[in-house]
Every structure is written in structure tokens, then in C-alpha cells.
Design a protein around this nucleic acid. Sequence first.
DNA 1: TATTATATGATAGTATTACTATTATATTTG
DNA 2: CAAATATAATAGTAATACTATCATATAATA
Lengths: 224, 224
Amino acid sequence: MEQLLQSLKIGINEKIFIKDPESSDLGKRIVEESIIMIHQMGFESFTFRKLGTKIKSNESSIYRYFENKHKLLLYLTSWYWGWLEYQLVFSTNSIPDAKDKLTKAIEIMTRETKEDSAFSHINEVLLNKIVINEYSKSYLTKEVDTENKEGYFVIYKRLINRISNMIKALDSSYPYPSSLSSTIIEGSLHQHFLKEHFSSLTDCNENISPTEYFIDLVFKSLKS
Amino acid sequence: MEQLLQSLKIGINEKIFIKDPESSDLGKRIVEESIIMIHQMGFESFTFRKLGTKIKSNESSIYRYFENKHKLLLYLTSWYWGWLEYQLVFSTNSIPDAKDKLTKAIEIMTRETKEDSAFSHINEVLLNKIVINEYSKSYLTKEVDTENKEGYFVIYKRLINRISNMIKALDSSYPYPSSLSSTIIEGSLHQHFLKEHFSSLTDCNENISPTEYFIDLVFKSLKS
DNA sequence: TATTATATGATAGTATTACTATTATATTTG
DNA sequence: CAAATATAATAGTAATACTATCATATAATA
């Protein structure tokens, strides 16, 4: 599994970047440091100028990789969802029982990323936190529909569909497989956020994980 | 009910504004037009300068009401949650049966706002759409914890608590009342958004409402 | 009615952002 | 070694997100 992820390249829509950041050392440093900086200062305060200073490169060089910071966020989050998708596929592929499969899938989708795989320049622990705090900003824009047509959200959509299909496989009579799937994925991010910042609005804490909550929620909804 | 809402003033934390926009004609125009503009152009493109031009007032005059557009968003969304809270309380107060009460509550929290009450300068239909598209930006910031301590999110939190209490009243053994409550409210906004922009990620459409989905989800989770 | 607060408007100014353009200098590749 | 390509350095622009100052209009009060 870890070997597989090591050698894997996540296929990101080429329209998201101008020049593939995986294709050069500078590109990788842009990605690596942007994750650290966005995590530290938040997406709003993060700028290409600051990133340039940090990686001792030039602002204009960064613009040769990404049109703007919104595209960079799309790149980072696409990478994250692609990475999660690999984990989902590898971990559930061999499970024959539909219920076991869905259980495992929910586990993967709702757990906190706790270890950096340390193979690549990408810190998955920080990236997970970025996704929790910033992902919705990538689609809550006036440009969603255009960007959706351009395919900027394909990986995310494919992921939600995979879970939706697992739900259907377990209970074909359930009327809301897509809504339930999107609730698990977006809801999980939200519960993780609440745990950190609005603890009175969630039951999740050190003892109760979002995974527990969603497993309960899903299997009470489905015939199984 | 409508009369009640007409004469009602929603109590918004005074730290959110510098000068109460309800206290003057200019203040009301700021609120009224900002709703229209944010809905039209999105929160990112909206500026106080543009608003000033639109209402034929001065940028600097707007700054005398709100420190910045983030505070204005907090004001608008607080107003919205306060308005929903009144509807919730008035509509469920007299319902004795815990299940009926929760059903009604879910209906109120998940339905689309379709009619502008036309009493005030505030267009609730547009405001509902703003909340769907922009609300999470108000708390997905590096300043959440400070602002939360300042009480900027009290109404929202109170609302979630009210639903959580209704869940507890119906099924005291359910282990995740707060998570379920926050899932209903945030999840509803999300399903409405998906319906508009990512129809393949939801089962909600013209025929199936988010309300149906959440009613099903909640009552399958609870003993009742 | 005159005085004086208070609210609003007009204008200007600043630092920062989000870029674009140009030219110079490395570095890689053929 | 030449030519292509990548990166760096520098400068410049329009817009944003304010702050400051002063003028004027309106309202409250003495």
C-alpha cells in the first residue's frame, strides 16, 4: 500500500495548472511550502508574494505554474481527494461483503489524517487540515458552474459517486444514496471543524470520532 | 405570525457593527442593497466602494456602520439565523408531541425560503441564497476562535442547540444529538447548493426536497 | 432662534494585493 | 557550442481595503 502510494502520481486536470508543478524542483517547492503556509496563515492571508519570499523564488515564477491562488487551492484539494480515492479503492477493492466494504469506506473518508507518508513533498496531515478549513471556498464561488464544466472537481465527484455506489450495492431501495454520500464526505469535514472550533455543536471529541457517528448514521438509514 | 415577525427586531451582537444599521435610513439601505449585491456578484467581488456607488452614498459612510465586509456578512447571516429561530420557536412551541415537534423543526430548517415577507428592507429569499453560498466563509477563517469568544455566532449556536434538545427529548439514548443537529443545518445548506451546482451529487431536485431526505435520515436514526 | 452635536459626503492618501510585462541570467538539451 | 527553456530581478498597473481630514447638512437642545 505505502509502496503503491509512493510511486503513484495523482492525475489532476491539466487545466488547473499552467505548468505541472510535479515537473520541476521549483514546482514541488511551490506545492510543499504553500501547504505549510496556507495551513499556518489561512487561505485569505496567503499570497504568491509571501510564498515567493519563503521559498526564495520569484513571485512571477510562481505565476508560471498557477494562474492564481484559487487554482493552487484547486490543485492541492484535487490532489488530496485523489490521494484519498486511491486509499479508498485499494482498501475496499478486495472486500466482498457490501456492508464491510461500506464500513471501510466510511472509515477512510471520515478519519483524520494523522501521519505524513513522507514519500513526497506533500504533507498529508497539513493538507487534510487545509481541506477541512478551506475546501468549501474552492466551490462557493460565482465561477463554480464554469469550473465544474472545465472538470476542476472531477476527482471529488468521482469519490462521492464511489461511495454512493457502495450504498446502492448494499441497499438498492434506499432513495438518497448520493445525498447520503455527499453528507458523509462534506459532513465529516464539518464535524472535524466543529470539534476544533465549536465543540458544543458536535458530540465528536477525543473519545467519539466522526467515523463512529457516520457509521451509526449510515447503517441506521440502510437496510442491511 | 407574520404580524409578529413584522414588529420583531432581531437581537444581533452589538460588537458586530459599529453603528446599528437599523438606527438610520442609510443603515437600512446598506443592509438592503448589500444583500442584493452580494447575491448578484458573490461575496468576493462585493466591495464597500461598489456598494457606496450603488446606494449613492460614500464608502467612508459605510465604514461607519461596519468595520469591513466580513462583519457585514456576520451581521446578515446572524440576522438570517435569528429570523429562522423566531420561525422555529413560534411554529414548534405549541406542539406537544416530541416527534411532531422535531418534524416541524426539520421542515423549517431545511426548506428553501420562497417568499419575501416584504415588511422590512431585508429580502429573505435572497438572504437565504447568500447563506447557502457564503455562510461557511464567515467561520472558515483564522479568526474563528476569537470571534466565537466575542459571541459572533451565538444565534447560530443557539439554533443548533434547540434542535439538539428536540432530538434529546425524543430519544434521550441517542448518542449524537449535537452532531445530528449540526448535520441537519449545515447539511441542508449543502444539499441546496448541490442541487443548484452539482446535481449528480445529490438526490434532491424539483421532486425530492432536502426536507424529505433529512426527515428520513433523522427518524431512522432515532428511536421513536 | 442660535448653538452645537451628530451624521453624512467629498476628497485624498496609503499599504497591500493580484497581477502583467520586460529584460537579464542561469540551466538544460540537442 | 548554440539554442531553447526556466528562472530571477525589477518595474509597473489597477484595484482593494482601508484611514484621515475637512466640509456640509440635518437634528437636538439651550
